[in-house]
Design a protein around this nucleic acid. Structure first.
Length: 277
DNA sequence: ACTCGTGTTAGCTG
DNA sequence: TCAGCTAACACGAG
């Protein structure tokens, strides 16, 4: 599920419920999710500390830690990425799930506990859990945030133009490049280009100035709506993203293909390339 | 049984 | 070195 809006929701959940609680145990036994750290490395680094601040850039969350009872001493930072199917669940001391958690996407039976891939246990009896059926999420110490481009909610028009239009790649593939602009996923990219009436296959060097401006404004609009509405799935076009779907604006058939290696849907009438390919 | 997928990245080619 | 593409990762859902 997670694109920028879902990750921001997880960040807020952590900010509201998981900070300043003393970590007394860490289950880092899933060595794939914790790669490249061997089991026990995260436990050794984090036990006895507290989470003291939570940040997000794009889809990456990272947490500052300090020795229990302080907020000053710098320590290892804990990076969390939700991957394709990850969720953060924070439980209160009595074991109830803190508001904002949403662990039930893949069922509600007791067996769902097996999707817990990484757990911080707090001294008060509560916990922070990364729950991730596909195990494509990851946790790691001191993540390299510098490899990410500016957060999609922060990018300025001038930055956007420079980052978007360099090179010759298809515009959708560029929107998905986290090292250029961080936070846009497959659904948001389709929704942004649909709102901008730009073909996902259009090469970035062939975009008109007007098209670049439309994509930028659509980016702002789509992110604002998704953050307010709670997710990338609420876009106007997303419901039409299936075989037989029609464009919500003009009723033309939606077209499906692969762009930048990802499943892509666009309006057959409004999102034609400017040039013949 | 078989295909697909809201993400990332190592490794490859040019 | 850079730009761009592909396979691999893993597993539930249709």
């Amino acid at each position: 599920m997670p694109e920028l809006p879902e990750v921001e929701t997880a960040r807020r959940l952590i900010a509201d419920h998981a900070l300043h609680r003393v970590i007394v145990d860490v289950d880092d036994s899933d060595s794939y999710v914790a790669r490249p750290h061997p089991p026990g490395e995260l436990r050794s680094a984090l036990t006895g500390r507290s989470l003291t601040a939570v940040h997000r850039r794009g889809k990456t969350i990272w947490l500052e830690t300090s020795p229990a009872g302080t907020t000053v001493a710098p320590g290892p930072e804990l990076g969390i990425h939700l991957g394709m199917s990850g969720r953060i669940v924070v439980t209160d001391p009595d074991g109830t799930m803190a508001e904002g958690g949403d662990p039930y996407r893949y069922g509600t039976g007791p067996g769902r506990a097996r999707w817990s891939r990484f757990t911080l246990t707090f001294a008060d009896g509560g916990s922070l859990v990364l729950r991730d059926p596909r195990r494509l999420g990851r946790v790691r110490l001191n993540p390299d945030i510098g490899r990410l481009g500016p957060d999609a909610t922060q990018v300025t028009p001038a930055q956007f133009r420079a980052l978007l239009t360099k090179g010759t790649i298809a515009v959708k593939a560029r929107l998905l490049d986290q090292s250029k602009i961080a936070g846009i996923g497959n659904l948001l990219a389709d929704e942004i280009l649909w709102q901008a009436r730009v073909s996902p296959q259009e090469r970035v060097d062939r975009l008109s100035a007007a098209q670049v401006n439309r994509v930028y404004r659509a980016l702002r609009s789509v992110l604002e709506a998704a953050l307010a509405g709670g997710g990338a799935h609420i876009g106007d076009m997303i419901a039409a993203r299936h075989p037989g779907g029609t464009c919500p604006r003009d009723g033309a058939p939606m077209v499906h293909g692969t762009v930048g290696g990802r499943s892509t849907w666009w309006c057959s009438r409004e999102q034609k390339p400017r040039h013949r390919g």
